[in-house]
């Protein structure tokens, strides 16, 4: 790990200002992604700004729904009774992610900014357009078994690795951001992560120095009846090969509203309006679920080693919808 200076910030402006004014600086909260990547020299920073003293805390019911402070830890949100009962898909996505130790460390804001596990990105011996713009993408023709089948480009097919963001994007979550001028803005999570296109190094809409303050999730019938299904190569402590976050409001066998997002298959947390369109107003039957899954994967562009994900993701979505309505 390269050497760096450390600044413990006590006010948001101090933290955001330090990172805005120094392109080589980065925020640190839990550190579980950052220090991992700094040890690999994938990220190098000359200053780390510790934001753990900032008051971005709290897990609470508001008039409209749920509010989670960005510095809450994954474990605390995952095991929060309100979240478990009213927003099960959020709790499940958290408790199926990482390990208990990492969940005790990792913050909610940092988790949403988790970086890809693409082996080429993580190994500086290889070219990577995300790490070194313009250097190339060996994943296109290389080891792409774990990589994305939705949202990729000729420059990058790196999978977004997270689980929480998939659950949150399904439930129309909105992020509250704050920049170095102290100005706050709200960004729907679905618009927060960017498709790689020709600029895979740009992963989110965050401005230099801008911080995630909190996440809000509007309450609805489909938030309470929701679940997260994660398919992995071992039963715990692994990234998703495919996952599905689903929320349904079913009355008299008819689906009144539906929320669907997929993980492990997209270059960003993958909200599927196509699947939702099929589900909404249709009977809650396996035929409907199959049609929704087909719609969700219609645009899939698999590579040599990840063709299996097209069927796996569909089956994952069908099983999630089936279990939720059982």
């Amino acid at each position: 790990m390269n050497n760096f200076s450390y600044l413990q910030a006590t006010q948001p402006k101090e933290a955001t200002g330090a990172v805005r004014d120094n392109q080589q600086a980065a925020f640190i909260a839990g550190g579980t992604t950052l220090l991992d990547l700094m040890k690999l020299n994938v990220e190098t920073h000359d200053q780390l700004v510790d934001i753990n003293m900032l008051a971005f805390k709290g897990i609470e019911q508001t008039a409209d729904g749920l509010r989670i402070g960005a510095l809450e830890r994954m474990s605390d949100v995952g095991e929060n009774p309100l979240v478990m009962q009213q927003y099960p898909v959020i709790s499940q996505s958290l408790l199926l992610a990482a390990s208990p130790q990492l969940r005790n460390m990792a913050s909610i804001g940092g988790n949403l900014l988790q970086r890809t596990r693409c082996g080429y990105f993580r190994d500086t011996a290889f070219p990577c357009n995300k790490r070194q713009p313009g250097s190339g993408c060996p994943a296109q023709e290389g080891e792409n078994r774990g990589l994305a089948i939705l949202g990729g480009s000729k420059d990058c097919i790196a999978t977004f690795p997270g689980d929480l963001a998939v659950a949150l994007v399904a439930l129309d979550a909105v992020l509250l951001l704050e920049n170095a001028k102290g100005k706050q803005r709200r960004v729907p999570l679905v618009d927060f992560h960017l498709l790689p296109g020709s600029t895979p190094q740009r992963e989110t809409v965050l401005e230099p120095g801008e911080l995630i303050v909190s996440v809000t999730v509007p309450a609805a019938a489909h938030t309470r009846k929701s679940m997260y299904l994660k398919v992995r190569e071992r039963s715990s402590y692994a990234y998703a090969l495919a996952s599905a976050a689903v929320g349904l409001d079913v009355q008299g066998g008819q689906i009144r509203s539906a929320r669907v997002a997929l993980g492990g298959v997209g270059t960003k947390p993958w909200r599927s309006r196509e699947a939702e369109k099929v589900l909404t107003g249709a009977p809650a039957t396996e035929a409907t679920f199959r049609a929704a899954a087909a719609a969700a994967l219609r645009e899939a562009q698999p590579r040599e080693h990840n063709r299996f994900k097209v069927e796996l993701a569909q089956n994952t979505l069908v099983r999630a919808l089936t279990e939720l309505t059982a």
């Binding site: 596990r117 693409c118 082996g119 190994d123 080891e143 774990g146 990234y239």
Partner: peptide, 8 residues
């Protein structure tokens, strides 16, 4: 998974 990098 092959998401894990070849270790250096």
């Amino acid at each position: 998974t092959d998401n894990f990098p070849p270790d250096s």
